Every structure is written in C-alpha cells, then in structure tokens.
Amino acid sequence: MIGQALQLIDMVRRGELRWLAYLAASGLSLCVDAGLFLLLLSAGLTPVAASALGYGMGILVHWLVSSRLVFADGTAARGTSDRHRQKLFFVGSALVGLAVTTAIVGTGSLLGLDPRLAKLIAIVVSFQTTYWLRRHLVFRPDIA
C-alpha cells in the first residue's frame, strides 16, 4: 500500500497524471471534433472546412475541461485579467492546433490521401503541440 502511494506521488511529480488527464480531455474533445468532422464531410463540406468546424467545437469542450479539471491549479480566478489572458492564450494555442490540423488535412487531400487518414495524422501532431503550449504557457501556476 505504501509503495503504491509513493508511486502515485512520483507520477504526480513527473506530471504523468496531468498528461493522462489531458489525454482524457483531448479524447472527449476529439469525439466532438471527429464526430462533427465526419458528419459535415458526409453532408458534402470540403475536408478542410469540415476539419476546421469540428476542431472549433472541440476547442470549446477542451477549454471547459482543461480549465476546470486538468489545469485547475494553474487556472486564474474568474473575472481577473489573468483569466482573460489565459482564455486568449488558450484560443491562441487552439489556433496553432487548428493551423496544424488544417495544413495536414489540406496537404493530405492535395496529395490524394484519404481525408480521414490525414485527420488521424493531424490529431497526433496537434495533440502534442497544444499540450506543450497549454502546459508551459497557458496554465503556468506561477502566473495564475
């Protein structure tokens, strides 16, 4: 029992649990993103437009989960200028992720790649990019 508690403490120190929580938040956001992407794609929207709209809804879900659960210790108090800054930086990090996503899906489409495969590649690259930005820039506890 003591050994398991020490392992858990060590995981927290290394940030593994935060990464796993972020992974779960991203999974939820991805379900919204990919579900809308597939729905819009089947409705006839271009792959880039469907990807951008799906990603945009995923951003909203991700903010809600990230600011309240994943990075709660680094989220500034409501109504403060720091919280406003975090929201702007969060949207900025999402726009970086959106640019990565749409560039990969667009390039894949131009190269004749199935848009679903291009989207899968974009998911991996965008996930790592936005996690780094949010962990180190948006939700820094020393700023909150």
Rank of each mutant, 00 (worst) to 15 (best):
I2K: 05
G3K: 08
G3T: 05
Q4G: 06
A5R: 15
A5F: 09
L6H: 12
I9W: 06
M11Q: 15
V12M: 11
R13Y: 12
R13P: 04
R13S: 10
R13M: 11
G15D: 08
G15C: 03
E16H: 12
L17N: 12
W19V: 10
W19I: 10
L20V: 05
L20F: 04
Y22W: 05
L23G: 15
A24F: 15
G27T: 09
G27M: 10
S29F: 00
L30F: 07
L30I: 04
L30N: 01
V32L: 13
D33R: 01
G35Y: 04
G35R: 07
F37W: 09
F37R: 02
L39A: 13
L40E: 07
L40N: 04
L41A: 09
A43I: 06
A43S: 12
G44Q: 15
P47A: 11
P47H: 06
P47F: 03
V48H: 05
V48Y: 03
A50T: 03
S51P: 05
S51H: 04
A52N: 09
G56W: 05
G56D: 13
M57N: 14
M57Q: 14
I59Y: 00
V61A: 15
L64G: 06
S66M: 06
S66V: 01
S66Q: 12
S66L: 05
R68A: 10
L69V: 15
V70W: 02
A72T: 07
D73R: 13
T75Y: 01
A76L: 03
R78W: 11
G79C: 08
T80D: 13
D82I: 02
D82F: 01
D82P: 02
R83F: 09
R83Q: 10
H84P: 00
H84E: 07
R85T: 14
R85P: 02
Q86R: 04
Q86I: 03
Q86W: 03
K87D: 05
K87H: 13
L88R: 14
L88N: 14
F89C: 13
F90A: 08
F90I: 06
V91W: 05
S93P: 03
A94E: 06
L98P: 00
T101G: 07
T101Y: 04
T102A: 07
A103R: 01
A103T: 10
I104N: 00
V105Q: 00
G106A: 06
T107F: 06
L110K: 08
L111M: 13
D114A: 10
P115D: 12
P115N: 08
P115I: 02
P115A: 08
R116V: 12
L117R: 06
A118C: 05
V124W: 02
F127Y: 15
Q128N: 14
Q128S: 11
T129S: 11
T130M: 08
L133G: 00
R134W: 02
R135L: 08
R135Q: 13
H136Y: 11
L137W: 14
L137R: 08
V138C: 09
V138H: 01
R140D: 12
R140I: 00
I143T: 14
I143P: 02
A144S: 13
A144D: 10
